[in-house]
Design a protein around this nucleic acid. Structure first.
Lengths: 333, 333
DNA sequence: TTGAAAGCGCTAACAT
DNA sequence: ATGTTAGCGCTTTCAA
């Protein structure tokens, strides 16, 4: 059975290809009678117009390229995968397909499909290098960044409000009687570091709490390095009663360290994280953290990129996070 | 700056479009001199040919559609996401793009992009409904299934050898002195149930061990239902010394149940899983399980679908799994 | 080795 | 309201 074309349908229906094209795209310009007849034939023959030719003539790919960062840890992948679900679900409603790809050549180059016009828009996940942002800017394809961890004036981004998250986490700790609070942050993305630290100190300041200089200048890069930092922290003469980890995976490292040092959580030390990765509710004790609707972020990203493709101006957005109370923080009386 | 076309390049190089096309596709038919000249112009102008037109004329999309099951749990997502990584990495080497999509209308219909000729091949993940298999068969697009959990003669599939896994897990338990072994399996996919049960009884049989009828007719659907099944199991007069969970997520539910019933693992009861999901090495105690190279499965899936697209005959494949010894099984002396 | 020209299957401008 | 036709940017046949 040969693949049908608009021509075939037109012939069968005894109309012109224009008519067929019009009914395919729900456009005015055909009588109801003709429309009906064509629709019947389309249904009868189960005709599906070729996307390739439509793409060619409209100079549009109907693809969104989802660019994953190649250097993620498995847990971060999971975080982003939940966002991906939101993107994919939404894409089906927007009549876009999503192509998953990743930067090539050590993060600094976009894949060919971008330059071959095979994507109408790009959604980057996670913080990306300035070099890549430049490339994206100059290739002319609309793009935005989800969870860039930073606020760059020149790029549209969707970010969880990490400053507020750090503020809320700190306030929560304070409400539970903690005053000697440490923060393990990430200096990898300086904006992220600044945001979380200022949220932290803002909350401390509001309660006129002093910040121990040994507690606020700690940076980790992952679970293992957080483990090492926690070790130093816990060996201090006067150790904190609570530690805020700006990433859940840090909290997992810190917990492991506490266990190894025979400190029980939350009795000896309370721990709070940010992100709510899947693991957080399965470790022992379950991690209290600040979470976000990841699938919702994906939905939003899709909606925003569609607006951008339409040429509309789209503002960066800061998403509120929510406290998720579990078992890793205790009350000091 | 207007988008360049082969015509522009041809004009700049003073040759015909044919020549340009030939050098773009590394085909014979142009003199070295001409080739060089055209290549220079291409590099100079940073020309990237449009994919859309190529697709149209070659009647090929250069896309692989990766079909995700819509009803996955986060745990399963974890498993399949690792496979996805393998697929994506490999796709870039094969010059295919991967479009991620999912079945629509309650699993029984393929997305439009398949019928519009926007995919040269389909990779299904996880067991899919027979109705969907029919659709896939009749649409004429080559496809295969990764981790279908079943062996259907008519479809190409890539499956971990779950029977062998259950056999190995059981043998491992027996080697560690266990004789009262229970198995919590999944009846959702009957082939999977059969495979795991026959692996189990084969190992038991080889050691002339009797199977307690209360220990071998247990089916769960997820973590929570495994919890409930474990509860019944652990309340039995004579409870098993070890339980084999045919899915890691079951093992996690069983572990939670054991803890809630004050049974310590592995002292009071040993647990072994199958799959090695990411979580398994993070829970307490770390889960001993039978794992598989998931990224490798993805790579293989990509290679196989490319072969199928080329029209080659491709056989289904059964992949060996490996025992991963951790802390959830103890030795009985 | 080279170039002219005919499509691939659509959309849309234009004429009727 | 309807039909004719000229492209979209490539590949490839065919003739030179």
């Amino acid at each position: 059975m040969k693949k049908l074309t608009v021509k075939d349908i037109a012939k069968k229906a005894g109309v012109s290809v224009t008519a067929v094209s019009f009914v395919l795209n729900n456009k005015a310009g055909v009588s109801n009678e003709t429309r009906k007849r064509v629709q019947d034939i389309i249904k009868e023959t189960d005709f599906k117009p070729s996307l390739s030719s439509k793409k060619l003539v409209l100079n549009k790919s109907f693809n969104i390229c989802l660019m994953m960062n190649a250097f993620s840890s498995p847990f971060e992948d999971l975080f982003y995968f939940e966002i991906t679900r939101g993107i994919i679900n939404r894409s089906m409603k927007c009549n876009y397909n999503v192509i998953i790809s990743k930067p090539i050549l050590s993060q600094s180059e976009l894949p060919d499909l971008i330059y071959s016009g095979d994507a109408d828009g790009i959604i980057f996940m996670q913080d990306i290098s300035p070099a890549l942002i430049d490339k994206a800017n100059s290739c002319g394809v609309p793009f935005l960044i989800v969870d860039s961890h930073s606020s760059n004036e020149n790029v549209t981004s969707i970010n969880p409000d990490y400053k507020k998250a750090a503020y809320d986490a700190t306030s929560y700790l304070i409400r539970h009687g903690h005053t000697d609070i440490a923060i393990i942050a990430s200096k990898v993305v300086s904006d992220f570091y600044n945001q979380t630290l200022s949220g932290f100190s803002e909350a401390m300041g509001e309660h006129n709490l002093m910040i121990n200089p040994h507690f606020c200048n700690i940076s980790a890069t992952g679970e293992d390095s957080a483990y090492e930092e926690a070790k130093k922290l816990f060996m201090l003469e006067k150790r904190p009663s609570a530690v805020l980890c700006t990433v859940d995976s840090f909290a997992i490292g810190v917990m492991r360290c506490a266990k190894d040092m025979n400190l029980s959580i939350p009795e000896d030390v309370s721990i709070i994280g940010i992100d709510d990765i899947l693991l957080s509710r399965y470790i022992e004790p379950k991690l209290t953290t600040i979470g976000i609707d990841k699938e919702g972020m994906g939905t939003l990203a899709m909606d925003m990129i569609v607006q951008k493709i339409k040429g509309k101006k789209v503002e960066s957005i800061l998403l509120p996070m929510q406290l998720i109370e579990r078992d890793s923080v205790n009350t000091i009386t």
